[in-house]
């Protein structure tokens, strides 16, 4: 049987990949994808903890489903924003979108 720590290790690795993508990529779409990765890493954790620690309760799965829903909504809104920005400024590079500074 695969122990819990393996799952946690996997989730941490996926989270780090996602985090790196968010911090390092220039393309806003890629940043969004990084965020998706981080959310999925959290989902792995949730499901793993449920399975190993409290298999009689459905709360872990419920959390995972809620995260999915939020992730879907977030992707839709995020992509809509990116399209809108692209139409206005003709770019999707995060560094160039810096209107909100002093």
């Amino acid at each position: 049987m695969i122990p819990l720590s393996w799952y946690l290790t996997l989730a941490a690795a996926v989270f780090c990949v996602g985090l790196y993508g968010v911090l390092a990529r220039k393309n806003a779409v890629a940043i969004l994808m990084g965020i998706e990765l981080m959310l999925n890493a959290v989902n792995i954790n949730l499901v793993a903890f449920w399975h190993y620690l409290t298999p009689t309760l459905a709360s872990g799965q419920m959390f995972a489903i809620i995260v999915f829903t939020v992730a879907a909504a977030e992707a839709a809104v995020g992509l809509a924003l990116i399209i809108s920005i692209y139409r206005r400024r003709n770019t999707v590079v995060a560094e160039e979108i810096d209107l909100m500074k002093w």
């Binding site: 911090l23 390092a24 810096d98 209107l99 002093w102």
Partner: peptide, 17 residues
């Protein structure tokens, strides 16, 4: 402190992290 407000999302994220 206004210098830290660069308007670049990723820099903010680094600070958050």
């Amino acid at each position: 402190f206004r210098v830290i407000q660069t308007g670049k999302v990723q820099q903010y994220l680094i600070v958050v992290m």
